[in-house]
Design a protein around this nucleic acid. Sequence first.
DNA 1: CAGTATCCAAAGGGATACTG
DNA 2: CAGTATCCCTTTGGATACTG
Lengths: 103, 103
Amino acid sequence: MLAVQDSMDVLNGKWKIAIISSICYYNKRRFSDILNDVVGISNKMLSKELKELEVNKLIIRTVLATQPITVKYELTEHGKTLKTIINNLTEWGIEHRKHIIEQ
Amino acid sequence: MLAVQDSMDVLNGKWKIAIISSICYYNKRRFSDILNDVVGISNKMLSKELKELEVNKLIIRTVLATQPITVKYELTEHGKTLKTIINNLTEWGIEHRKHIIEQ
DNA sequence: CAGTATCCAAAGGGATACTG
DNA sequence: CAGTATCCCTTTGGATACTG
């Protein structure tokens, strides 16, 4: 019961899954790349969400010594285990949409 | 991608899963019962969340001709398919907690 | 580039009281 | 009992500007 809420807390909000999907799809991704991938998100929100994902050890943040500096985000091994969850939720979402449309 | 968000929208918020779990556990459940089961929820919130779940065809609302009237909530067949999702999320939540605690 | 800081409007949601 | 209505504080998050 608590555990479900833990999961939901981690994935909660409007952007988390889109961000994870972006990083996941490209393997590694920079801040401004994700900002472009996730349509509608502001830099403030992206910054906040990335921090939360990092605290939850789903992603790793690495500062690269470029000029100007760039930052690379990757999924951790633990973060990658979310793939299954996301697939489950995707399948259920598709079924759900059918049920709603069929009224 | 959209489908994941559909699922998340349906399960989103602080209370949905707790409410579903309450109804699921008892099979059928009245408004005031759920109000007691879900610690901390207000009647306003419960009312709102139940409406959303009903619109999404996860639960069925039935008014009983008692005096005073009571209302029974049950999971639809479609609502019951959430069990798998919830179990997945639970398992992942447990694993996740381990990862966080181990730091 | 990768953020942080500030301002501010809108939404969320608790507490309480009320209704059929 | 099963909600609705109202008040009102808190949180959210967009827009914009700024910094190392």
